[in-house]
Design a protein around this nucleic acid. Structure first.
Lengths: 173, 173
DNA sequence: CCGACACTAGACAGACCGGTCTGGTAATGT
DNA sequence: ACATTACCAGACCGGTCTGTCTAGTGTCGG
């Protein structure tokens, strides 16, 4: 098939892009399906054949965001020369994301605040948190911390708190 | 009128109690008006004559919660003997609230995550954050901190981060 | 007794929700 | 030439949302 070098973005990708934009900016509960498909220029049936339900679209949106953040973090951290700088560098990366235009807090904190206690969305937010935690543990261990698990927990508190402050106080922290 | 010593709770109070319970546990956006009035045992018209709109009910719910937290904090902090213990005591009080049954994170963080960017709800959540900030500044100053404003900002990051971790990780931090 | 008031019960309106379904179009592989 | 696939446009469904309105009840002070 003569797929161009730059293949036209598929409906699925456009849907994910629209979800990433609207869900993140206004909340997964506030934004309706109609807004998403209108923004993506996609038929409603296409959305439901691709994702099955709104909840699954939300999960896919969060997973995509998770993947992007992980890729950015890995790439940026690789530039640091020693383990200690790499550990502290997490907060450099975090601080830079606060400065991005349209920053609206941690997507996973926001989504979990909107979700019902038994929502399948919490599974994805939990995976993100587990990744952050594991990242801190690994970096703390590499940096020679006496108790990496404990330090990781403390760093995650700083990580979360900085995100909340950045969203609610609009300060750079 | 022979109001008993224990006056029967007014419709307004029952509505606020129901709002406090349902909004906090499940989110202000998820819980509908019908659930509130059913739980309060109150007619819908009474709610709208007392509060005017759902947004105003949400604001009243948050203001009530703010008042309660402020009262608890003031009372508990008064028990500490010196300024430094009083400053650190904020986190003792915070930690105790995490252990209360039905704890579901900071109501103001949650509500602001659900709100539209121009929602009148953000006004009330902002007032709460300003109070927390002012409390930390005052206590830091009394404790003789070199830069009370800066320290207060750092302590608020810990305050927020601990709340997020307590909700999302169900850990006592 | 009477008017004012606070309240209850519930129908109702109008908008919007997530989700399904039909019908049509264009490109594909065989 | 044909079937398949992927997609779009939009009507449609049942349900839920906030908010209004009507009608009736009980309780109070004067």
């Amino acid at each position: 098939m003569a797929t161009n070098v730059t293949e036209r973005t598929s409906a699925r990708e456009r849907l994910l892009a629209a979800a990433n934009q609207l869900f993140y900016a206004e909340g997964v509960h506030t934004v309706g399906i109609d807004r998403i498909i209108e923004h993506a220029g996609v038929a409603k049936a296409t959305l439901y054949s691709a994702f099955g339900s709104k909840d699954e679209l939300i999960r896919a949106y969060l997973r995509t965001r998770h993947d992007v953040r992980r890729a950015i973090m890995d790439k940026r951290l690789a530039a640091y020369g020693n383990p200690r700088d790499r550990l502290l560098g997490v907060f450099d990366v975090l601080g830079d994301t606060f400065l991005e235009p349209g920053f609206h807090g941690c997507a996973f904190v926001n989504a979990s605040a909107e979700a019902n206690p038994d929502s399948p969305i919490l599974e994805v937010t939990g995976e993100y948190r587990a990744w952050v935690r594991a990242l801190f543990v690994e970096l703390a261990r590499d940096a020679g911390a006496a108790e990496p698990e404990q330090l990781a927990g403390q760093l995650q508190v700083l990580y979360d708190g900085a995100g909340i402050a950045a969203r609610m106080d609009k300060a750079t922290g």
